[in-house]
């Protein structure tokens, strides 16, 4: 041994780090790029189907029912309705939000498709289907073409939505 320093003897190797990594280039396409650019301006942009009239957010550029391009851009409200939700109590590797937290499907006013959002500023046992929520955005200068521009949704204070108004979206 030529080492001058005295070190603790190392035990036998029992585990091996085997990270799996995939670096890739993502192109969301024209329709979803409009949605993302909308987020950069602090608003939700969807697209309406010219045939059935449904508004999709985020739009993929076509109507999945009618198979036709969606070309009309629609700006949606900053408020919506919780259709369903899940309270996350289980910790997992890489978790970035303190548990317990609420993950909900939010149907924005004017949209015919809900999307997933984080609900905050409410005790987890008070969340309910039909709750009216509003989006809370990051500071103006921090807005980016990313869903990270939406910090979370919080109760808007309005009365709960009637079940009949969102039962189609469960």
């Amino acid at each position: 041994m030529t080492d001058e320093t005295v070190t603790e003897p190392l035990g036998p190797v029992t585990t091996l780090a085997t990270p799996i990594r995939l670096d890739f280039e993502f192109t969301p396409g024209v329709a979803q790029s409009r949605f993302l650019r909308g987020l950069e301006q602090g608003k939700f942009m969807g697209q309406r189907c010219p045939k059935c009239g449904k508004v999709y957010v985020p739009s993929r550029g076509s109507c999945p029912t009618d198979g036709v391009p969606t070309t009309e851009d629609v700006e949606l409200a900053n408020v919506g309705t919780v259709t369903t939700y899940c309270v996350v109590n289980v910790p997992f590797a890489g978790q970035s939000i303190e548990i317990p937290y609420i993950c909900a499907q939010v149907l924005l006013d004017g949209a015919n498709l809900s999307f997933m959002g984080l609900i905050q500023e409410i005790p987890t046992d008070e969340i309910r289907m039909g709750m009216r929520v509003e989006a809370v955005w990051v500071e103006r200068e921090e807005l980016k073409p990313s869903l990270a521009s939406v910090r979370y949704f919080r109760p808007s204070g309005e009365p709960d939505a009637d079940y009949e108004t969102f039962k189609e979206y469960l």
């Binding site: 990270p19 799996i20 280039e25 192109t27 790029s33």
Partner: peptide
């Protein structure tokens, strides 16, 4: 259309 680099990683 936007374009971005992403990394998917599991430790």
């Amino acid at each position: 259309a936007l374009h971005a680099s992403h990394r998917l990683e599991y430790p």
